[in-house]
Design a protein around this nucleic acid. Sequence first.
DNA 1: GATTTCACTCAACAGTCGTTGACTCAACGA
DNA 2: TCGTTGAGTCAACGACTGTTGAGTGAAATC
Lengths: 188, 188
Amino acid sequence: MGERVLPRAERRRRTEGKILDAARSLFADVGYERATIRGVAGAAGVDPALVMQYFGSKEELFRHAVRVMPAPDGELGAEEVVEHLLGSLTVKMGELPQGSLAMMRSMLTHPEAAASARQVLGQQIDRLAEALPGDDARLRAALMTLVMLGVAVGHQLLELDELRGVPQEEIARLLRPSLHTLTGQDVS
Amino acid sequence: MGERVLPRAERRRRTEGKILDAARSLFADVGYERATIRGVAGAAGVDPALVMQYFGSKEELFRHAVRVMPAPDGELGAEEVVEHLLGSLTVKMGELPQGSLAMMRSMLTHPEAAASARQVLGQQIDRLAEALPGDDARLRAALMTLVMLGVAVGHQLLELDELRGVPQEEIARLLRPSLHTLTGQDVS
DNA sequence: GATTTCACTCAACAGTCGTTGACTCAACGA
DNA sequence: TCGTTGAGTCAACGACTGTTGAGTGAAATC
């Protein structure tokens, strides 16, 4: 057939990619503890020993699988912060990168995933807080972040019937006022 | 010492209780998959085989540990629904019953815990929805429930620094307007 | 007081897991 | 062309898991 002979470096790259894809998918589906090296290797069409040879350990494989981008930041106004959050919802409802899903799926049971989640949420909170007025900005930023986390968990991981098939625009529309009141813009 | 001789039935009851307490605590701390029968038995000061003899299997033990009360319902107005939610937050911030914590901890990785969580959240949503006006009441009820879930997860399970030591009244105060806008009371 | 019941323990089985070392064979450099 | 590198496989080890069956001794029953 069209079986081209690939140079070694390229072949290595592709195999590593297949393993990482399989790992991300499995971690996202069943979480860290239920995902097995054998399962990942099987899904990638590869021997389990190869996974170990490439990534060293299951922990390290997980670490590579959930590597998360450092969030490109720019100065935002308090107003557009809400839209940015709702935008991240849009991406969350569609195809949230499987690496993030894997991290979220495991964050309640795998200590390292929990630490990673704390870090990601923490810098999200930091970004929000410095765009919000008031001295309890951090607390309100944390609550806004957790609102989004709750919705993402309910939709992506628990797959609640009430959110199934609901267009993200409608969720964003309903959530917008709630997030807006948390910005502390309006005087009480 | 004061070692009274207990009748068999009473002794059995106490031992089962110790096992269930240990199970709830361990399930809540590390989740279903990382909790072991040996760990539960050790914490209860009992042989692992006894846990099996009493509860049949690890699954059954978990089922008994997370048994949740059927939520005593009464007809509520749309207004007081928010206060009821915030009240459940109060209990969530303090000592949410360990059984519920165990269920929450495991809901992302253990399929049966996920099903249980879906059921509990579902009936919570139902209660809310029938107290809310509008035809998208169920969706708004689901979002309100997920808001609370997100806060509970962030505080109880992830233990975010931003929420550590924050009195529940302040969280309730900040969350109240957000939940209120989700009731759909105000015209747009 | 003899017998039965039952709470509880001990030791082991069988399966699965992460991990490892020796091995095969094709691509590479000289 | 020949030795070397490295991608990939195979079989196994040791640890840990849920689970089980036989066994022990004290409380319950007669």
